[in-house]
Design a protein around this nucleic acid. Structure first.
Length: 846
RNA sequence: GCCCUCGUGGUGAAAUUGGUAGACACAAAGGACUUAAAAUCCUUGCCCUUUUGGGAGUGCCAGUUCGAGUCUGGCCGAGGGCACCA
């Protein structure tokens, strides 16, 4: 038997697709469009299994939609700015641009070997001037619209390298390269006013019906709308501070007020800048990281002032005012009203500083005797110990009621607050899009004039400097405009900015004047299906949604608010982890499995420790190189395997055995193909066979609906079922006249998953132009069905009956059935539940 | 710590969306073919019964229902996100 030569076949078809630009797309208003987009990759060096999975999922969909007659846009590009290039370049004395571009070439070749139906004529790279120059235009447009501003913000500062660190570069509070203890430091930075659109971004979520609920919930929580009240607390003390404004969602617990906590950056802090203890305290606070997690987990510490805050509902009561490390200047007004009995964080703080803990909410039914002792009670209940508020249901009625009282007495104001912070886009790095701004001698910022745009990144620069490399480029740093000398902005833009609009660029990749053409985005946008990792659920997706609104804002020609119509978040590719006896990570190809035990390859004496299966990552060495796998088994086998084992939205375990079985399956399909082909050549074809007709229609129906629902793993099962059916069927059947037509349809159904194999087989039976097959609804129905008979809810029989059988008729059959007789004899039937074509449940009087 | 998601055989999973739990595959055991091995094919798969058959069973505990993997509440466990990785 001739074996299937995947190498030859795959190369042949890939070349043919390349030569004919088979997947290049043009705007065609007569055709319905389908824009399929997968999150574009960072060109880190080689593609990894996560890419294989992501792009296979998108490719299956694109090929299917294309066969369905859509004008499919399926582009690919490179998210090419970012830290890894800068680090690799710095460590190996390379140019980030060369490093990036050579990675792009490698990865593009690897993607082509997967047989993806990509329109490579639309390839873009965010680090090319052609791309980032438009981004500078957008930046200046947004600046003009008042959506960009400058403010001070904290960063992770490495005092040895004199550089800003990303959160991931801070390991256990120390800089990853220098080992210095990382400090919080304030820097003046550029911000996008995403908070202006808080409500709009929240409302927009309601329209995204084809997004996973979990992503919508995450974004909703991220935006963090809360209803509450702003309260001005009267302040007594020896400083010229009369009042401090607070936002709270629980004004109803004011009678449990026991301290007021301020951020160390609160304006009141200006009176403490000469206080040595306060300075020390502030330094102590700066050691807590900048992440929310670090603040939440870290110890709560405070600095007591001699100020007192007055309880607005009980003017005779004064409580101390503290500075505290857990209060953020970004949220509310940088001041928190502390009610320890009903907030765990406040409770911990109060315990530590021995402050009053007064219970003001009791769970329902415990109004008489309830007191908070060991932990805060944040749940619902009834207000107690609260004077005129007593008895109100908390928080459902009490919050609203309290706000009314505060408003009436002019002590507070109803307010909606959002957690969403403005987007800081300044990065103190070289390898990013330059921010088109310059500063005059007073330090005031000005847009770079149009005639000086784009601002190009300087080349051949020294990356091994302290601080920001661009800041050290004396030849680049200064610009002279109209005879006046300016200093350039040396920060570059966050790479999330690049990925916030790239999907527009794919619509007009060659437009040179502006980032996109209106008629092209009008046709192609929105993206019909966006596919990527759930790790982008919040930031990238929210930033993109913001970016569309920002361009839309005061722009009559731009009508997009939601860029991604449907979203699919795929799971990760996981593999077991291995360690040797010195606890060093081992890669799977260093490990050998004998029986149930794992050994170091070539050394049966050293047992390898097997760890849990985790997302493939270089640091844990549990990676499988897709290129190597494609070479050994072929692209179709890899595509088949990566889809087969788990639903695409869940994590999948990489398994060599699973991979081999996919490979074998293709070989079996090839053998089947040869049998069918020989039957087709046989001239005696006199019988028309209904069975295969019916089977084919059922298969088309199943695969079509599973494609629509992203049940790609089930499609693979459908493919196995199809093989199992056909191989048995052909054993027992002579030649039939309708074999070719049915086989053709089956091959087309397989083609989105295994395009090379299917193309070759279709070609071999002489078919080159084809569409997605339709199925006949009448043909997929069975006349005979199996119906479940339950007695008192327990399954007792499975009966073969005519489809559509009536309740009374079925009951007669049941009564006569020998196996069921014993249950029914001498019993009275109380009730019969009948679900047509499904089941009958007979309830007996016991 | 906060937010989100997910728990079904030895393993990955399927289940017409409240109606036959375990499709399809991997692994294992037994068998067939073979001098032998590989490859391939067949059978088996929790407990009781020789069989027919019966029982338990979808992380744990309750609840709703004629009926729960699916709905509700509580608990336990795993994973993801937490604003400068992309």
């Amino acid at each position: 038997m001739e074996r299937y030569n995947f190498k030859e076949v795959e190369e042949k078809w890939q070349k043919s697709w390349d030569d004919t630009n088979a997947f290049s797309t043009k705007l065609d208003k007569n055709k319905k469009k389908f824009y399929c987009l997968e999150m574009f990759p960072y060109p880190s060096g080689k593609i990894h299994m996560g890419h294989v999975r992501n792009y296979t999922i998108g490719d299956v969909l694109s090929r299917y939609k294309s066969l369905k007659g859509f004008n499919v846009l399926h582009p690919m590009g490179w998210d090419a700015f970012g830290m890894p290039a800068e680090n690799a370049a710095r460590d190996n004395n390379l140019d980030p641009k060369e490093w990036t571009n050579s990675n792009i070439i490698t990865m593009k070749n690897q993607l082509k070997k997967l047989g993806l139906s990509i329109d490579w004529e639309r390839e873009i790279s965010t680090c090319s001037e052609d791309y980032y120059k438009h981004q500078q235009t957008f930046f200046l447009e947004l600046l003009k619209k008042g959506l960009v501003y400058r403010k001070e913000n904290y960063v992770n500062w490495d005092p040895i390298d004199e550089t800003v660190l990303a959160n991931e570069q801070v390991i256990d509070g120390r800089g990853w390269r220098s080992g210095a203890i990382v400090e919080r430091k304030k820097l003046s930075q550029w911000f996008f006013k995403i908070s202006k659109f808080s409500q709009d971004l929240l409302d927009g979520l309601e329209t995204l019906n084809a997004w996973p609920n979990k992503v919508k919930t995450m974004q909703k929580n991220w935006i963090g709308k809360s209803f509450g009240c702003e309260i001005d607390f009267k302040i007594n003390g020896d400083l010229p501070v009369n009042k401090i404004r607070c936002f709270t969602t629980r004004p109803d617990t004011l009678f449990g007020f026991s301290f007021l906590a301020l951020s160390v950056d609160h304006e009141v802090s200006k009176y403490f800048l000469e206080n040595e203890d306060f300075i020390k305290f502030k330094e102590e606070c700066s050691k807590t990281g900048t992440t929310e997690e670090a603040i939440a987990v870290g110890e709560k510490i405070g600095f007591k002032t001699n100020l007192k805050a007055v309880n607005p509902l009980k003017p005779e009561e004064e409580v101390p005012v503290y500075f505290a490390n857990f209060v953020l200047m970004d949220y509310g007004f940088g001041a928190v009203f502390g009610c320890p009995a009903h907030d765990q964080r406040d409770f911990d703080f109060a315990k530590k500083y021995k402050l009053n803990i007064k219970t003001v909410v009791a769970p329902f039914g415990k109004e008489e005797s309830y007191t908070v002792i060991d932990e805060a009670y944040p749940g619902p209940g009834v207000l107690i110990n609260s004077d005129f508020l007593n008895g109100l249901e908390a928080p459902s009625k009490s919050v609203d009621e309290t706000i009314k009282i505060l408003e009436k007495r002019n002590l507070g104001k109803r307010k909606v607050n959002y957690r969403l912070k403005d987007w800081g886009v300044s990065r103190q790095r070289y390898w990013g899009c330059p921010i088109p701004i310059m500063y005059d001698e007073n330090g005031d910022s000005h847009p770079i004039p149009e005639s000086f745009l784009p601002v190009k990144l300087p080349e051949n620069i020294n990356l091994k400097v302290k601080g920001n490399p661009l800041d050290n480029e004396e030849n680049w740093k200064y610009i002279s405009v109209d005879g006046k000398k300016y200093t350039r902005e040396t920060d570059t833009l966050d790479t999330f900015v690049c990925s916030s609009w790239y999907y527009l660029r794919f619509c007009s990749p060659n437009e040179s004047k502006y980032g996109f053409k209106n008629d092209e985005i009008d046709y192609w946008m929105p993206v019909d299906q966006y596919i990527g990792g759930v790790e982008h659920a919040i930031l990238h997706l929210l930033y993109s949604r913001f970016f569309m609104r920002a361009i839309n804002y005061r722009n009559e020609n731009f009508n997009i608010t939601e860029p991604f119509q449907s979203l699919f978040t795929q799971g990760m590719v996981c593999h077991e982890t291995y360690k040797d006896n010195k606890n060093n990570w081992l890669s799977p190809d260093q490990v050998e499995k004998v029986g149930n035990k794992y050994f170091l390859k070539g050394n049966k004496n050293e047992i390898v420790k097997v760890g849990p299966s985790e997302s493939m990552s270089k640091s844990k060495k549990n990676v499988i190189d897709p290129e190597h796998i494609i070479e050994s088994y072929g692209a179709d086998s890899v595509r088949l395997f990566i889809l087969s084992d788990s639903p695409p939205e869940k994590d999948v375990q990489w398994s060599e055995q699973g991979m081999v079985s996919s490979y074998k399956f293709i070989q079996k399909l090839w053998a089947l193909h040869k049998i069918i082909k020989s039957k087709l050549l046989d001239e005696k074809k006199d019988t028309f066979d209904e069975n295969i007709e019916k089977f084919t229609n059922q298969t088309i129906s199943k695969i079509t609906s599973n494609l629509e629902k992203f049940n790609y793993n089930v499609i693979i099962a459908n493919m196995y079922e199809t093989y199992n059916y056909l191989i048995n069927y052909l054993k027992n059947n002579k030649n039939m006249s309708n074999l070719e037509n049915n086989y053709k349809k089956i091959l087309i159904c397989f083609s989105p998953v295994i395009p090379h194999f299917s193309s070759e087989c279709l070609y071999e039976i002489g078919i080159s132009n084809y569409k997605w097959p339709e199925y006949d609804e009448k043909l997929i129905q069975d006349d005979k069905i199996k119906i479940v008979i339950q007695i008192n809810g327990k399954k007792r029989a499975l009966l073969d009956v005519e489809k559509g059988i009536e309740k009374s008729e079925l009951l007669e059959i049941v009564r006569k059935d020998k196996n069921l007789e014993k249950y029914l004899v001498e019993k009275e039937i109380k009730k019969v539940i009948f679900v047509e074509n499904r089941l009958m449940n007979i309830l007996l009087n016991e």
